[in-house]
Design a binder for these strands. Structure first.
Lengths: 112, 112
DNA sequence: CGAATACTGTGCCATGAGGCTAAGTATTGC
DNA sequence: GCAATACTTAGCCTCATGGCACAGTATTCG
């Protein structure tokens, strides 16, 4: 649960940057090289590479170097962490809503 | 679309901190005061207040001050932005998968 | 009214993120 | 083999973040 939180941290941090979200989006349409990706963004290659590393370090993408070209691929599974977290939130609300409904229906059961 | 991205930025940034995610989670179980919330976290009140302000500034919570107590309430709608973004990603993958399937089925149609 | 409570404001600090330039390395194409 | 390509490394800079202490304000309670 603690390391689960650390992973979530990483995923949210990675997605908090518009450049990195755009990369994730782009890779959703198919894998491509760092250079190809970088061309779409108004920054130098070293700067862009930091984003790639961040995405990889947090598991959102995988990269492989073949020759002088590094190819990036989306790791869809990782986004499921966000999905799971959201689902957990919704579960919490629903439980609460259920309890509130129960309170309305049968107030004696749920008084603080 | 640009300001949409700025909003997403804010939401992801807000959720990238474990303290703030914990607050969102806690508020999912019901509204409560800043002091009550703060008690659960190992930091000073001014530090904690920064998190509250961040969450409010990014629309994830609403707060109201009544007397000397500030009450915090979750704004569930805001989390829908994350949901929407994830859904958009999935749509992209699925389109791509469809195209790949079409390619396999009928290669002439989809050659680059 | 005075003390306790519940924030709020201010200023400081350390760290890290995100950008840059410049130079280096490893592959590939001619 | 030499030049071009595609990163990669290193170092630097600035600003934002997240923490702190300390002092201040506004309510509420006795």
């Amino acid at each position: 649960m603690a390391q689960y939180s650390a992973q979530l941290d990483g995923v949210f941090v990675a997605l908090a940057d518009p450049t990195r979200r755009a990369v994730v989006r782009r890779l959703g349409r198919g894998s491509t090289s760092v250079g190809e990706l970088a061309r779409e963004f108004p920054m130098t290659l070293p700067s862009f590479m930091k984003h790639v590393r961040t995405l990889e370090a947090n598991g959102l993408i995988r990269t492989v170097k073949s020759g002088r070209v590094r190819t990036c691929e989306l790791n869809r599974d990782r986004l499921a962490l966000v999905d799971d977290w959201l689902a957990e939130q919704r579960r919490t609300w629903e439980e609460r809503t259920d309890r509130l409904e129960q309170f309305v229906t049968d107030p004696e059961e749920d008084r603080q």
